[in-house]
C-alpha cells in the first residue's frame, strides 16, 4: 500500500450540542439515567462523524461526546477517585478536580464501547484519544499515594491495561493527551517513564499530544518518549517552528494547522504555507495535518469550517508532492 502523504486528522474533542450539555447537567443532578445520557451522546456522535466525513478528514474520532471532561471522565471510570466539588482554575472558572482517595483500580474497559460505536458509523480510520497518567494525576488531589510520582506510575499501569483492551478491539491509532506536561518541564522524566509503562506491549501507532506549551523546555526531550508521533500546537504560534529544527525530528509529527483559540477561519493559502514549513522537519508521509488541539472551545460551524479548509490545504499539498 502506497503511503499516504499529509494525512489529515483531529486531536479529539468537538463542541457538544446544547441538548447534550443539558443532559450532562441533568445526569449529575440525578434527573436522568446514565443510559439516557448515553443515548443522547450517541446521537451527538452521529453528527460529529458526519462533520468529519463531510470535511473529508482521513482519521476521525467521535468528538469525545461521551466524556464529561478530559480528567473527570477517567476519574469517574477508574476506581479510587472521588469528587468533592468544583475548584477554581482561575477567575470565575471552575472544574471538578477529582481526589484520589484510595489506590486506583482498573474496573473495566473505558473506551472500547466508544470505539466500537464510532466504527459502526464510519469506514474511515479512527483515532482514540486518552488522557495520559501524568495529566490526570497532575490535575487531581493525591490522598492515597506517598507522592505524585508513585500515583502517576500506578495510573500508567492501569492505562496500559486499557490500551491493551483497545488494541484487542481493533484500535490501530491511540493518542495520549498530556497537556499538563509542558507546565512542569522539570518533571519530564517522570512523564517519560509513565508513557513507557502506559505503552508497554502496545504495537499500534501511538501519538502524544502536548499543548499549552512552552515547548522549547520539553524539546527535544519528548523525542525519547515511546511513541511514534508527537502532536503539537503550532498554528497559534504562527508556525514558528525554528526551535524544532535544532534537533533532527525523529518521529512523525501531528502538525497543528489551525488555531483552536481563534474563531477566525484560516485561509487555504495560510495553512498551505504553514504546513509547508513542516517539511523542513519531516517528509510528507510523516506529517499529519490536524488542528492545534481539540475543537471543543469553538462553535460548531466554525470548527467545521476550519476542518474543511484544513483538508483543502492538505489536498493542495498532496497534489504538489505526489
Amino acid at each position: 500500500m502506497a503511503k499516504e502523504i499529509f494525512p489529515t486528522t483531529i486531536v479529539g474533542s468537538y463542541s457538544k450540542p446544547d441538548y447534550l450539555n443539558d443532559a450532562f447537567k441533568e445526569y449529575y443532578a440525578g434527573k436522568i439515567s446514565h443510559e439516557q445520557l448515553h443515548k443522547l451522546a450517541e446521537k451527538a456522535i452521529v453528527d460529529v462523524i458526519k462533520d468529519h466525513e463531510e470535511a473529508d478528514v482521513d482519521i476521525v474520532s467521535d468528538g469525545e461526546m461521551r466524556r464529561s471532561e478530559m480528567t473527570e471522565f477517567f476519574a469517574e471510570n477508574i476506581g479510587g477517585f472521588k469528587m468533592f466539588g468544583p475548584v477554581r482554575v482561575w477567575g470565575n472558572n471552575y472544574y471538578q478536580k477529582p481526589s484520589i482517595i484510595e489506590k486506583m483500580t482498573y474496573k473495566k474497559p473505558i473506551l472500547v464501547d466508544e470505539y466500537n460505536y464510532t466504527k459502526s458509523l464510519t469506514k474511515k480510520r479512527i483515532k482514540v484519544p486518552i488522557t495520559g497518567p501524568y495529566t490526570i494525576v497532575d490535575w487531581s488531589f493525591n490522598e492515597a499515594y506517598r507522592n505524585k510520582e508513585e500515583a502517576i506510575y500506578a495510573l500508567a499501569e492501569i492505562e496500559n491495561r486499557e490500551l491493551k483492551a483497545l488494541v484487542k478491539a481493533g484500535v490501530d491509532f491511540i493518542q495520549i493527551d498530556e497537556p499538563a506536561l509542558s507546565t512542569h518541564p522539570e518533571e519530564i522524566e517522570i512523564a517519560r517513564k509513565a508513557i513507557e509503562i502506559t505503552t508497554k506491549g502496545i504495537d499500534v501507532k501511538k501519538g502524544l499530544h502536548i499543548c499549552y506549551g512552552e515547548y522549547d523546555k520539553i524539546y527535544p526531550a519528548v523525542l525519547d518518549f515511546n511513541v511514534d508521533q508527537i502532536d503539537l500546537e503550532l498554528a497559534n504560534r504562527k508556525w514558528d517552528i525554528d526551535f524544532l529544527k535544532e534537533h533532527e525530528f525523529t518521529k512523525e509529527i501531528g502538525y497543528g494547522a489551525c488555531d483552536v483559540h481563534n474563531p477566525r477561519v484560516e485561509t487555504v493559502e495560510e495553512i498551505v504555507a504553514g504546513v509547508r514549513k513542516g517539511l523542513e522537519l519531516v517528509s510528507p508521509e510523516k506529517l499529519f495535518v490536524k488542528p492545534d488541539c481539540g475543537l471543543k472551545m469553538l462553535p460548531r460551524n466554525i470548527a467545521f469550517e476550519k476542518l474543511k479548509v484544513m483538508v483543502k490545504a492538505a489536498k493542495v499539498l498532496r497534489k504538489e508532492f505526489e
Partner: peptide, 8 residues
C-alpha cells in the same frame, strides 16, 4: 483554602 472544594 481557595483551591479546595468548598466542603473540604
Amino acid at each position: 483554602l481557595e483551591y479546595l472544594p468548598e466542603v473540604i
